[in-house]
Amino acid sequence: MEPFTIIVLIKPVPDPRKSRGSVAIDPERKTVRRQGVPLTINLADRYALEAAVALKASGVGKVVAVAMGPPDAEGAAREALAIGADEAYLLSDRLLAGSDAVATARALAAACRRVGFGAVFAGAESSDAGTGLVGPTMAALLGLPHVPHCRSIALGDRGFEAEVRVDGREGRVRAGLPALVTFDRLDRPPKSPGFAGVVAARSKPFTVWTAGDVALRADEAGMAGSPTVVREVRPASTAKRAVIIGGDPEEVATRVLAVLAEKGVLSDGR
């Protein structure tokens, strides 16, 4: 097989380690606020990236990270270089702000076409908006087979062979190239790039692209190119439905056990 490029889509998301896990909303755009908050690579995307880098041992020529986000997302793109991508592109343009899932997929697909690829890897779901739509939508846009919820992947002579876990079923799935593979978050932590990775990233190419660089028109991108709009964000209802059980721990225990007994869920049938 000829060496080919794997593009890994890395979404810059608010860093849960630095923003205490809370995702803030931009009151005007009603989108996730990504400007001015510390950003990092979406966790699922790191497994995608690790898998792509590992495949370099079996004939993959090059791993290219592609991110779309505000200029602050440069750090996340460089993180991808430290983890092992050979090149990184950040698609960053005011025109792209407020893109919904379809518009995001369109912009990323345009970037992928410009880079050229034998496969596209992405996360199954982001940790902030988490629609899980970008992968499948890109597969449709680029006309690629979609291998969802991949947990491990190998390259054979007939393409990829992947372990997947889909809708409560687990099995091995094959797809010819080019293909789009989306990766789950795994139970093990992702690999740290180490200091060696950070130093190696210094000399790797990093490029910022505008919408024009990937031949996106204004009406295809951003809010204008998004078929969905968020009309409002409603706070969680504060109405209380629970009957409060008061008293000291012994009284509470009695009442709670009474509920469990009434529902018949205690193992010895009480």
Binding site: V23, V229, R231, V233
Partner: peptide, 10 residues
Amino acid sequence: AFGGLAAIAC
């Protein structure tokens, strides 16, 4: 969304 509900229109 964001601890509440987002109302999305198309």
